[in-house]
Structure formats: structure tokens, C-alpha cells
Simulated scan of single mutants.
Amino acid sequence: MGFEPHISEGLSYFERAGDGPVLVCLHGIGSNAGSFSRLLTELPMDWRVIAWNAPGYLNSIPLTMDWPAASDYADALLALFDRLNLDRISLLGHSLGCLAAAAAALRTPERLETMILACCALGHGFEQGSVLSSASQKRISDLEALGPKGFAAERAGRLVFEPEHNAEVADFVMQNMSEVSMPGYGQAARLLAGGKLLDDLSDCAVPTSVIFGAEDVITPPENSRKAYAALSEIVRGQLISIAGAGHAAYQQCPKEFAAAVTRCLSSSGEIL
């Protein structure tokens, strides 16, 4: 059984029903909920899996502010939890999704069983509302200049390790990226510019594990190691490297990534 599309008060999401643990997945800046479809088939069939389209992505209504903070995305996520009566959740954030996940963990740690951060985007630490970081400004300028398809064609290949030998995965990543649009992407780029993941993780009270692609050139493995080190030892779970995976680790190596997620939900304190 695959994902079914839903929408709740202007926020769209995909869901696979299940009677087991609840896993909520948050995509990165150049993706959407559909990117988790390859991972879904590898996760235990009894898990209830929900993947959101962040505000401003696909059918989700954008946020009201031009430069949102991670807490604004967390508010939207927690409101969805309320509407779906979700509690005792496992939360998986990938790349930019790590910022929203960590902010949600700060807001309501009692609602989360565990958190998994993958291929961590640390944020650029710029003051909210100031001049954008050059990397975030380039993202916005490139999308505006090239359009979604041209933007995806230029960027998507870097998310996959050896894309020339993994054409199907590269095409899948590019298709998801070609569906980004303004203003949602611009808001997400500003979130990236202002994000301070390491600061948020230093106050995290939720058991947290970190997974990363060993060949990631977008958010290099050192980023994820820094995120893991920022966690207090009390909540620090596993640190897992996925061999042969680039930034789009859960799309490129879904079987290995799903096995890592399963280990993260069942144990802690190991570095693999």
C-alpha cells in the first residue's frame, strides 16, 4: 500500500495508514512529500507514515511572512499534529527539514518518541530580516532566472552520488525538484539563511539520531557529525553513515536508509 494524498486547512500531506509506530517525514528545500515514496516501500508495513508538503510546496499554502523562522514551520507542523490527533511521534527531517524538526522538538518534546535528522542543513545563522546569505540568494535568483525545470536540471544531479551510474534516481530527484515554486521556495531559502540548527540541538530534550550519506557534497558528512556532537549525551542516539549515498540518501539507498531508521527507533548510543 502506498501514499494517499490529503489536505488539511491548506497543508497537504501524503499518508500510509498503519497500526504501528507513527513516522512523520519532513523533506528538504528542493523536494516534496513524494520524494519519500521510494523509502516508504522499505519501511515496516504496519507503520503509519506521513510526509508533509511544507508550507508553499505543491498544494500547501505558503506562510504569511517573507522571512520565516524554523519556529514558524514548527507551528504549522504542530497544528497538523493537533488536527490529526497525533501523539508519541517519531519525526524524520531531511536537510532543511532538520531545522523544522528541531524547532518542533523544542516546542513540544513530550509529543515526540524520537527524532531522526538526515543529511543535516545547519543553517547559515544570518539575522532574520537582514541581507540574505549568498548561498540562499543564489538559490532564489537561479530559480527565478531558470524556472523550475531549468533549476532542477542544473542542481539535481549533485544530490545523487555518481548520477551517471544512477540515472533513475537522478531523474526521480530532478522531477521532485522541478516542482518547487515561489514564494514557498523563497521562504525556505530565507529559513536556511537564518537557521541555527546547532543552537537548537544543544537544548534538545528528545532522543535524537543522525543519518547521513557518506558521499554527500551538499551537506557534507561533517555537518551531520557536528549536529550529532551538539546533542547532549542524555539524548544522543545513533550516528549512521550510508555508504554509496549522496545528499538524497533516502532516495538513492532506500533499503539501507530504512534499515537505519528502524535501528534508530529501536536503540540508541551507537555509531555505525
Rank of each mutant, 00 (worst) to 15 (best):
F172T: 08
E110M: 10
L63V: 11
I50W: 00
L122Y: 07
P254Y: 12
A76D: 00
I89D: 06
R88K: 15
M65H: 04
A101I: 07
A135D: 15
I29Q: 04
Y73I: 03
K255Q: 14
C120Q: 04
L201E: 05
N32L: 05
S35E: 05
L265V: 11
L84H: 09
R263N: 13
A260W: 03
E144A: 14
L239Y: 05
G194A: 14
G195C: 00
D171I: 01
I116T: 13
G237C: 01
L201Q: 02
R236C: 04
G125N: 01
E154T: 15
G195K: 06
A79E: 13
E222L: 12
A100R: 02
W67H: 13
I234C: 08
A258P: 01
A79Y: 08
R158D: 08
I211T: 06
L231D: 05
A230C: 09
D216N: 13
Y250A: 09
R16F: 06
D200G: 04
N176H: 14
G30E: 00
A214S: 12
I240H: 07
K196Q: 12
S136Q: 07
C264E: 01
I242Q: 05
Q187E: 01
P183C: 12
C253W: 00
P55Q: 04
E113V: 14
A170E: 12
K138R: 15
K226W: 08
R16C: 01
A214K: 06
E162W: 13
V180N: 00
E168Y: 07
I240Y: 12
S267V: 06
D19G: 01
D203Q: 12
L265I: 13
E42R: 10
R107N: 08
V24E: 01
L112H: 05
S267F: 03
P183Q: 10
G269I: 13
H165L: 09
D216W: 04
P21K: 11
A205K: 15
I240Q: 07
P5V: 00
T219N: 00
E222K: 14
S241C: 11
L122P: 02
Q187G: 04
L146W: 05
G34A: 10
P220H: 06
P163H: 05
A188F: 00
P183W: 05
G194K: 01
G18W: 06
Y73V: 03
V160D: 09
Y250I: 00
E15C: 13
W52V: 15
E168H: 06
A105V: 04
L112W: 02
C264S: 11
G244A: 03
V169H: 04
C120F: 08
R83D: 12
N32I: 04
A118V: 15
G246N: 07
